[in-house]
Write a protein that binds this DNA or RNA. Structure first.
Lengths: 230, 230
DNA sequence: CGGAACATTGACCCATGTCAAGTGTCGTGG
DNA sequence: CCACGACACTTGACATGGGTCAATGTTCCG
């Protein structure tokens, strides 16, 4: 397995807890946001958590001089805003038209009173986020550009597989800039790396935002830092 | 303030929760580990959480080829192992002789039954870790070597201040290799950066593992990426 | 059709990594 | 008390991956 080599894709995402929580979600109000619209911004009071229904959201922090670190993407099924006590610690911005279920934190507290295991479930959910964030840190701290991009594509592929979509060919909802700010690379390096993977025959890019994984084994080798894959 | 520029030092550390939890800790058994000894390793079943009493612990993950990412240091007062469900997701290795309080997770569950707010406290503790880990990611993903090292020293200084020790001059419990693996730099770059800060008159190094912060304002400027500080 | 936004590509450069000596500093044992 | 070895740290010379700047292509949408 290549578990250690995966690029974390769910730092702020969470498997769906069930029970009282699911019930709250089912009756939660729906919100639509356009691409580039903010779901919330850093410093906003944490009034709601959100579950992505359709679309995709980028979660990021910015440095004073504008450098940006995307800490995760929210895809359908993912919960965002979790762990932000009092006020949000980062920005959540839609990267395509998106629908969200809005869950008031007040009602969450109410649910917690009825369902004593809810607190523990939230803890577990947060533990998964933390694990994913640390994996991403391992990636941005220690890996080469090729390893990062290869791992990123594999993580997307596996996520697609889990949600019953095609793991071999799929759309990239985010721009090269988003990928760069996630992996700690520039737009140009991301683009060049895609080109390199393409010329290695490992992937195809029928459109700039659509990838086809041609040789997954080789891609895994590249993600794991093997210099010469046979 | 320079909050955004701080290098997170408490990714796996936690302010002390009180109540039933504190009580459990007070009667928890004490364990001594020597420098370089493991507290636990990745894959070990999570039997205990630990609170550092004295000494220091490095928490890290390793890639297949040996590259290492330290995700945080545990200092006195910090809780380590939190969030690791079932088995530990990283290694915890003492970097100096260390004493730890050992808290069986079974007894933690027992406490949780008596104190329904405990689950929520653990959630909050984990939320703080997550926030710290994301800050560190922002650092390793986006900052230059000088910014990283300057931010690291400031974070250590502030931690010392909080625990009532001298924020201007203190020991570095970790080696250059540890600092490098934490900040995503090589030993040599860390060493050179220390030398650079020294020759800028911002710090002094009376011993290689003892720092004196001479010009904190300047250091903050460097940590924030200001090219020319006046 | 035209323009905006995104992506690709090339040329160049620099920060940091790599490799290789040195230089302390400490602890141990003679 | 000194000699030695082990380790950690520093420093230098050099290589290089990826950043920067700039030009060009492509896609999409009004």
């Amino acid at each position: 397995m290549h578990t250690a080599s995966q690029v974390a894709l769910k730092p702020v995402a969470v498997a769906r807890p069930s029970g009282a929580f699911e019930q709250s979600l089912a009756q939660a109000s729906l919100r639509r946001v356009e691409a580039k619209e903010f779901v919330f911004a850093e410093g906003d009071p944490t009034t709601h958590l959100y579950r992505v229904e359709t679309g995709a959201v980028a979660l990021y922090k910015v440095l004073a001089d504008g450098r940006r670190q995307i800490v995760g993407f929210g895809y359908p099924g993912d919960l965002i805003g979790l762990g932000d006590q009092g006020e949000h610690l980062m920005n959540a911005q839609a990267i395509k038209p998106t629908r969200l279920r809005c869950l008031p934190v007040a009602s969450l507290r109410h649910s917690a009173a009825k369902d004593p295991t809810l607190g523990f479930k939230l803890y577990e959910a947060l533990a998964r986020e933390l694990a994913a964030t640390r994996d991403l840190m391992l990636t941005t701290g220690q890996r080469s550009a090729t390893e990062r991009v290869a791992g990123f594509l594999l993580a997307l592929s596996r996520r697609n597989e889990r949600s019953g979509r095609d793991p071999a060919e799929f759309e990239l909802p985010m721009t090269r800039a988003d990928i760069g700010d996630f992996l700690g690379l520039t737009i140009e390096t991301v683009s060049r790396t895609f080109t390199k993977l393409k010329s290695l025959g490992v992937i195809e890019l029928p459109l700039s935002n659509r990838v086809k994984l041609v040789d997954v084994g080789e891609l895994e080798g590249l993600a794991d830092g093997e210099k010469h894959v046979c």
